[in-house]
Amino acid sequence: MHHGGAQGPHGGNGRGGMFGRGRGRGRGRRSLEGTLAALRQGDRAMIATIDDDSARAQALRFGMGEGSQISCVTTLPGGPVIVRAGRQEIAVGRSLAARITVDRACEVTDARA
């Protein structure tokens, strides 16, 4: 289980800017299905893609990069999703969570083993 495949759609947007954003927040509602924003307390999943350049880097620093196993600690209604990766707890804003896709089929296999 590696990161290579997950980065495909994002490598080529050519922006590379530290504050460059793939999407404006709140513009165009997309289905939350399969995103971090759809997780409920206790759910386990694997981070598939993070559609935000700086968030992707920051997530790697916290240990919840693409390919890592996470579990949902709790969600605040309309607010952040609280995620646990390893022994780290991370609060992810809702609109960012909607731009992070997760793979729930992987929950039984340990990607980082």
């Binding site: 927040r25 968030a55 916290f62 952040p80 707890e89 991370i90 992810v92 804003g93």
Partner: peptide, 10 residues
């Protein structure tokens, strides 16, 4: 401009 989203460790 565009604001950033929350991503902090607890």
């Amino acid at each position: 401009g565009v604001s950033t989203d929350l991503l902090i460790d607890l």
